[in-house]
């Protein structure tokens, strides 16, 4: 039985169609509407990139009040697999489902380029098919991607194996602390990253490395 992915669309989301295509390459995929408190019994939830609620107040700050987020929180707390990409990462951080916060890039510029990500843990549903130390080439495009946690919490993330990917040496595009490109929660089932694996699933576009995250999730038995 193929894994069912649900991709959440908020007002201002713009990467949901690419995310749907990436999910559909490895399983069944459907859109979920932010205003419905219903995850339609999907096995994996993807919160895609974009500019939910126009990035008003702070990036990701308002989307977490959408009705669907209550269900996403319950799903995550029950062990369900959740992937937040870019704005999705920002939303999960604001919702408290992932540690840390995303600040404006140090350059103050919108970054749009391919980066090499070094895999730091394979214990999540989205990296279970990737080896620790393996490099994936994936595009990043954001203005608020500088990952930040206070030093004490950074040490906890390192000790708890919660760092998902780091930007390869010399490629940190935004000033993220410890070159962090993505993290997971302590249990490992909720994952967020700034670069866009859903834009790297077709050789025509330069890289198919992003597919690895979706393939990993497609193989992982649903936990809920």
């Amino acid at each position: 039985m193929s894994v069912r992915f649900g991709v959440v669309r908020f007002p201002g989301t713009c990467d949901e169609i690419d995310a749907l295509r990436a999910c559909a390459a490895v399983g069944d995929a459907e859109l979920l509407w932010h205003g419905d408190a219903d995850l339609k019994d999907v096995d994996v939830v993807v919160i895609p990139g974009g500019f939910s609620y126009g990035d008003y107040l702070r990036v990701g700050a308002l989307a977490r009040f959408s009705p669907v987020m209550g269900e996403v929180t319950k799903f995550a707390e029950a062990g369900g697999s959740v992937l937040g990409i870019c704005n999705g990462f920002q939303i999960l951080a604001e919702a408290g489902l992932l540690p840390g916060a995303l600040l404006p890039n140090l350059s103050l510029r919108f970054v749009c380029k391919e980066v090499d990500l070094v895999t730091a843990t394979a214990r999540t549903p989205f990296t279970s098919g990737v080896a620790v130390g393996e490099t994936l080439r994936i595009p990043a495009k954001h203005r608020c991607g500088r990952y930040y946690v206070p030093d004490a919490q950074l040490a906890e993330l390192q000790a708890n194996d919660q760092i998902l990917f780091r930007y390869a040496e010399g490629q940190n595009p935004n000033g993220s602390i410890d070159d962090i490109a993505g993290v997971c929660n302590e249990a490992g089932n909720v994952v967020g990253l700034m670069p866009h694996p859903e834009h790297a699933v077709d050789a025509l576009l330069g890289s198919i490395d992003g597919l690895r995250l979706f393939e990993s999730a497609g193989r992982t038995p649903a936990a809920v």
């Binding site: 840390g100 946690v149 206070p150």
Partner: peptide
């Protein structure tokens, strides 16, 4: 809970 993010 909303107007500020106390972490940052």
């Amino acid at each position: 809970r909303l107007l500020a993010n106390p972490l940052i």
